[in-house]
Simulated assay, not measured.
Amino acid sequence: MKKIATDIKNHVLTGISYMIPLVIAGAVIMAISRVGGSLYGITDIWDDSYAESANGLIRLLHSIDGFGGTALGLMFPVIAAFIAYSIVDKLGIAPGLVGGMLVKDINAGFLGAIAAGLIAGYVCLWIRNHVKLPKSMASVVPVFLIPVLGTLITVLVINYIIGVPFAALNTGLENWLNSLSGGNQILMAAIVGGMVGFDLGGPVNKAAVTTAMALLTSGVYAPNTAAQVAIIIPPIGLGLATVFAKKKYNTELKEAGKSSIIMGLVGISEGAIPFAVESPLKVIPSTVIGSAIGSAMAVGLGAVNQAPISGFYGWFTVEKWPIYILSIAIGSLFVAVSSALLRDKNAGIEEVSSDLEDDFDEAAWEEEWQS
Rank of each mutant, 00 (worst) to 15 (best):
I8L: 14
K9S: 12
K9P: 00
N10R: 13
N10A: 14
N10H: 12
H11A: 10
H11T: 06
V12R: 02
T14W: 03
T14G: 02
T14P: 00
G15Y: 09
G15E: 08
Y18I: 05
Y18C: 04
Y18P: 00
M19N: 07
M19L: 15
M19S: 10
I20P: 00
I20M: 14
P21C: 08
P21K: 15
P21H: 14
L22E: 09
V23K: 05
V23Y: 04
I24V: 15
A25W: 07
A25K: 09
G26K: 02
G26W: 08
A27D: 04
A27K: 07
A27I: 05
A27F: 02
A27M: 04
A27R: 05
V28S: 03
M30C: 01
M30R: 13
A31D: 04
I32C: 04
S33T: 11
S33V: 07
R34T: 07
R34D: 02
R34C: 00
G37I: 07
G37K: 12
G37W: 03
G37H: 09
G37C: 06
S38M: 08
L39D: 04
L39F: 14
Y40C: 01
Y40Q: 08
G41K: 09
G41D: 08
G41E: 07
G41I: 14
I42L: 13
I42E: 08
I42R: 12
T43Y: 01
T43C: 00
I45S: 03
W46Y: 07
W46P: 00
W46F: 04
W46T: 09
W46H: 05
D47S: 11
D47F: 03
D47W: 06
D48Q: 11
D48W: 02
D48S: 15
